[in-house]
Design a protein around this nucleic acid. Structure first.
Length: 281
DNA sequence: ATAAGCCCCTGTGGGC
DNA sequence: TGCCCACAGGGGCTTA
């Protein structure tokens, strides 16, 4: 469930299970994927936060006893990858088992693209995407003027969004949905101010609505939350996984292409590539 | 410095 | 039915 809305939904749902708990064991057999997890043992989870698609558990000495302003001296970073998620029961694809004084959570990850690491707070040198993460789309840190200025020189706009640099947390689904909303072709380069402004507002609108809906869960239920609850935003997709169906805005058949190795869905009528006029006033 | 390409993994579904 | 290929919501690394 790896885009911002799904990660944020996961954060909210597992927070009550973890906040204030002391980690007793973290079991797995892949130390290169789940780095330094032994450092978390014996510490108390004082809070759960999120940056882009990364979850972080704030850890403090167990004696801190859940005080909100306890000095947390380590962070457990979790990235769900493509297929990662927490479960109450162990399953065929359980990769990590996290036991606290309040119960057990299983990290399931069929494709094993998920990662964990225990680090000093803010020490993200081994995670370059996290270290260079752009602003959160739903906070005031995400500023239209800055976004517009960067978009003027950007390469193909969809890969640019996926880079996590202009804004954090946008993945394949929400990139396609945002570009449809803004009526911009995913392969367009160098947006003008008007286009970039539309895209800025589209990203905020789409991400906000998706968080509110609890994210997207595909029809096979793969991306349901730990308690089996599904998100609802999949019912509001306009282009993602809708190739061959009519555009909700103009009725033209939605197309699917491959762009930067990712499936890309768009309306060829509403989202035409605009060539910027050289020397335009 | 930035961008494009390949790679890491496993499972599933469609086409033959 | 069985096999093979293509594809799947991510990110890191190498190369140009």
């Amino acid at each position: 469930m790896p885009e911002l809305p799904e990660v944020e939904t996961t954060r909210r749902k597992i927070e009550p299970l973890l906040r204030g708990r002391v980690i007793e064991r973290i079991e797995h057999d892949a130390p290169h994927r789940y780095r330094d997890t032994h450092l978390a043992v014996g510490r108390r989870v004082t809070g759960l936060s999120r940056r882009g698609k990364y979850l972080m558990l704030q850890l403090a000495a167990a004696e801190a006893d859940g005080e909100p302003d306890a000095l947390h001296d380590l962070e457990l970073i979790v990235h769900l990858g493509m297929t990662g998620g927490f479960r109450l029961e162990a399953g065929k694809h359980t990769r990590v088992t996290l036991t606290t004084d309040g119960g057990t959570l299983h990290f399931d990850d069929a494709r094993r693209f998920g990662k964990m690491a225990v680090v000093r707070p803010g020490q993200y040198a081994t995670m370059p995407t996290l270290a260079g993460m752009g602003p959160e789309p739903l906070t005031d840190d995400f500023e239209v003027a800055d976004f517009v200025a960067r978009a003027v020189t950007c390469g193909a706009v969809k890969p640019w969004l996926l880079s996590q640099k202009p804004v954090s947390g946008v993945g394949n689904i929400y990139a396609d949905e945002s570009l449809w909303t803004a009526q911009i072709h995913p392969a367009q380069t160098r947006l003008n101010a008007e286009e970039a402004t539309r895209l800025y507002h589209a990203v905020r609108e789409v991400m906000g609505a998706a968080v509110e809906a609890g994210g997207s869960t595909l029809s096979d239920g793969t991306y349901a939350q730990h308690d089996g609850e599904a998100g609802a935003y999949q019912h509001r997709h306009h282009v993602y996984d809708r190739a061959g169906k009519p555009c909700d805005r103009c009725g033209t058949t939605i197309e699917k292409i491959v762009l930067a190795q990712r499936g890309t869905h768009f309306c060829p009528q509403c989202q035409k590539v605009q060539r910027q006029k050289v020397g335009a006033v």
